[in-house]
Design a protein around this nucleic acid. Sequence first.
RNA 1: GUCCCCAUCGUCCAGAGGCCCAGGACGUGGCCCUUUCAAGGCCAAAACGCGGGUUCGAAUCCCGCUGGGGACGCCA
Length: 504
Amino acid sequence: MMRVRFAPSPTGQLHVGNARTALFNWLLARGHDGTYVLRIEDTDAARSTRASEDGILRDLRWLGLEWDEGPDVGGPCGPYRQSERLHLYSSYANELLGAGQAYYCFCSPQKLEAERAAMLAAGRPPRYAGTCRAIDRAEAADRIEQGEKPVIRFRVPERIDVTFQDLVRGEVTFNTEVIGDPVLVRSDGRPAYNFAVVVDDALMEITHVIRGEDHISNTPRQILLYRALGFAPPRFAHLSLVMGPDHTPLSKRHGATSVSEFRAHGILPEALTNYLALIGWSPRAAGGETPEDVELLPIDELARRFALEHVGHSAGVFDPEKLAWMNRQYMRRAAPARLAAETARFFVARGFVRRSSEAALAYVESLLPMAAGSVDRLEEIPERVAFVFQFDARASVEKPAVADVLNEPGAREVVAALPGAIAGPMLDRDAFRAAAARVRERTGRKGRALFHPIRVALTGEAGGPELDLAVPAIDRGAALAPDAGVAPIASAAERARAFAAVAG
RNA sequence: GUCCCCAUCGUCCAGAGGCCCAGGACGUGGCCCUUUCAAGGCCAAAACGCGGGUUCGAAUCCCGCUGGGGACGCCA
């Protein structure tokens, strides 16, 4: 039975790099009928916050990466928060101490820092010198009695090779020569990372540890700890990291990097997971499929095809442009009601919707055909249809693009004829076309020479969604009840009159 | 500095010795569609880091170089 885990430390927002690690674990578990465990690594009391933890859980759920066992849902191997497992770590630490596999170290942080600096300066690997290795039990007990607060270090065997089969990289070997004795338990009694992960992964019966490549050099220490503790090590797989366009680690200065930021900007979760899955991996096309067919796949299909052996070895650059394209694809495919619900908050932020009432949501949904598929993110949708909510004839004639349209031959004639051609609310395409036909009859203009002036007169813009959609959208909005929750919208007839008055 | 990992179009991937004068996607350029702006369709340009081997044959295997990344914490 396969068991995998995602083990974030709650010290900030869920980053897309970590989200990708979470995703790969999830894909593997779901593709193999395995169990996906979420564990919170909050042993760093100073930096961990419950707010971060809540945010990470929320973001993972938003992405659709539900876990089978975790801090909030429980499970047979709990608790799933390291801060609640402290007794386990000290018990195993004592076991190691008793067996002589660990020892107390009394070196001060300042002394260690000085040693590190000296070794680095001397061109040697800055590893712990082993100063306290020889302190015997009696002396240690004595000094602790005196009030000294030692750490507990793991006694790493000298000069042996530690080899493991990495599921993505193949055989990897480290010699313990370059590994200093790691701290297992800090002077405040809390466990250090390398110790806590091993105890937890072993006790939680994790079979596959899939994590970022930044952990690969921790692996030999951890394998040694598994041995010392008498546990069978799991299989390891190290994922290459995600970089910014300049090949430096992805960070704030590259723009949005956290899952919640992408959500805030109107990226759909399925677009983000699909995109992330394709950094360092790609589904194989099979059975008559072309490579193009497997670019966009739902997350369950991704899971069905996912294979660690086919995960790439090199770092990938995060490309916001491709994410944007993918989001466009998913926006186009999304169910209208859902898209409306997801987009409403952006209309509210813009002041176009005052209250997310049922009527307002229905109206937003009716606007979607003009925008979804034309823009990259949900947050751009209100801007795309802003002409519906904002109309100022005087301000728009000042715009160079609008002025250009008015200067086209016969344009003012069309604008002047428009108010008289509008018989009443144009609630559908045919009503609009009938009005346009009347203008055509009176002015003799057609095609671009007819529609372009009509566009500027009714929308105040030189460009935008097709008028067959835009004009009915305006008049349906104008017909909304004042308490519908939507900001007041001027009707096409009012617009035509106001525009003719200033454009004449 | 030492150790570890990595190396195909600008970017993400395909390629697991002959099917490759290298395929797909994003982006870019052009054309088309068009009642405007987007979107969409079609076409195009664009890569095996370098040097040695191995082999009848190498993008694919080996070695070196170069370049990139990671680790070396009482952070995780």
